[in-house]
C-alpha cells in the first residue's frame, strides 16, 4: 500500500505503524459523568466495518506525523489522507 502523505507525498506503508480506528482521536473526558462507560466503549469496542474505514497511521520511519487514512478494508484502496492534527482541530480538540 502507498500512503499519499499530505506533506511528503506518496510513501510506502511500511514506513508507518498502525494504531486503529480514527475514533481514538476523540478520547472521552475522564472527569465527566459516565466516564467509566465512555472509556469502556472508547478503549475496547470497535465498529470494525467491511468498507470505508478512517484509521490512524503514524509515520514512524519518516516525519513522525499522525495521519488519518480513509481506506476500504475490502480492497485496501486508500481514498483520502489527512493530517490527524487537522482532524483533531476540526473536532474542536485544540483548545
Amino acid at each position: 500500500m502507498i500512503i499519499d502523505h499530505p506533506l511528503l507525498g506518496p510513501r510506502d506503508a511500511r514506513e508507518f505503524t498502525y494504531l486503529g480506528d480514527a475514533a481514538l482521536i476523540d478520547r472521552p473526558d475522564g472527569l465527566a459523568a459516565g466516564a467509566e462507560d465512555a472509556f469502556y466503549d472508547y478503549l475496547y469496542l470497535r465498529d470494525n466495518p467491511a468498507g470505508l474505514h478512517r484509521e490512524l497511521w503514524y509515520h514512524e520511519q519518516g516525519d513522525r506525523s499522525w495521519l488519518v487514512v480513509t481506506r476500504d478494508t475490502r480492497s485496501h484502496e486508500i481514498t483520502q489522507v489527512e493530517l490527524a492534527r487537522d482532524v483533531a482541530l476540526a473536532l474542536g480538540r485544540g483548545a
Binding site: 486503529g20 466503549d41 475496547y44 469496542l45 470497535r46 465498529d47 470494525n48 467491511a50
Partner: peptide, 18 residues
Amino acid sequence: GHSGAVMAMAGLRLPIES
C-alpha cells in the same frame, strides 16, 4: 473473521477488529 458484521445486525459492537 466476520463477527462484527453479523453481530451488528443485533446492534452489538464487539471488542474485535478484523
